[in-house]
Amino acid sequence: MSSENNNKKVNDGEMLLSVKDLTVQYTSMGSVVRAVNGVSFDLKRGQTLALVGETGAGKTSIAKAILRILPDISATAKGSVVFDGEDLMKLKDKDMEKIRGHKISMIFQDPMTALNPIMRVGRQISEVLTAHRHLTREEAVEEGKKMLEMVGIPAERYNEFPHQFSGGMKQRVVIAMALACTPELLLADEPTTALDVTIQAQVLELINDLKERLNTSMILITHDLGVVNETCDDVAVVYAGKIIESGKKRDVFKNPLHPYTNGLFGALPNMNLDSERLSPIEGLPPDPTDLPDGCAFAPRCPYATDKCRQGDIPAVEVEPGHFCECIRVHEIRKEQ
């Protein structure tokens, strides 16, 4: 354990995950839903990347594709997901099972449904340990109790059922399960959306603290820009299955480039200003079964021209490390 951790420390800053041209499509009642359309990003060890976007933007599909837990029957994923030098997309199912829950694990959005209601919470944590770390039952119980205490739940509650816990505590149990094998990569899908703000603050603090102690990398999926600000290093804004803007958190927050990113910030009620009206983004996100040509945001974009409605939109590096998929980005900045 400890030597493994030391090892990780030495490798700090090294590339852990590299996703290239990831696409995910679902077939549903004869039509093809293009959920993820050519997403690429890199993640270094110990870093946190936020995937920000609205409902249906494809954030969760990206995470599920990385972990290969998309439904076989209706979904197809293409592209490469290189994790620690290995392309996960090419692994055999059996080898993938060894990575899932061990080196990569996931925290799901809704703690009320992520736990098995008829299994004691302690058992749900130790199950991961017996499966991946081949501990004996006694060792797993011992370790499971330690995990519970690490997330701030007394070990005496090991034998209780999920319904005996409050929402915040259930989410802590889910976090304990995800961290049981000290994963190298944590996929957190809206981990605090179902929680109240004071509990959210506690859970975010806990995740930040554990991440630092175990030097885990994290992909945080959220629609809450405040949560992004409190936890992440890098940000990628997802719209209609594409990353339309990415960069360091400071750059994206201080200097949002894409009209959609600007729109998101404008639509947010500001806590520090007394503004009379919000400036919503007019219109609706596009139908993923019928995506428009060119830029998917063009139908809602106040700056769109005919050029925006055709062909592929390439990513432009506007400042070092700050990318934006908008062909008019320079002109728009001048206009502002």
Binding site: V197, Q202, D224, G226, V227, N229, E230, F253, L268, N272
Partner: peptide
């Protein structure tokens, strides 16, 4: 009020932990 995550990068919230 202190538990609300802020979107201001420069603004460090003084959190009152409950």
């Amino acid at each position: 009020l202190s538990a609300i995550p802020s979107t201001d990068v420069d603004h460090k919230m003084q959190r009152v932990q409950l």
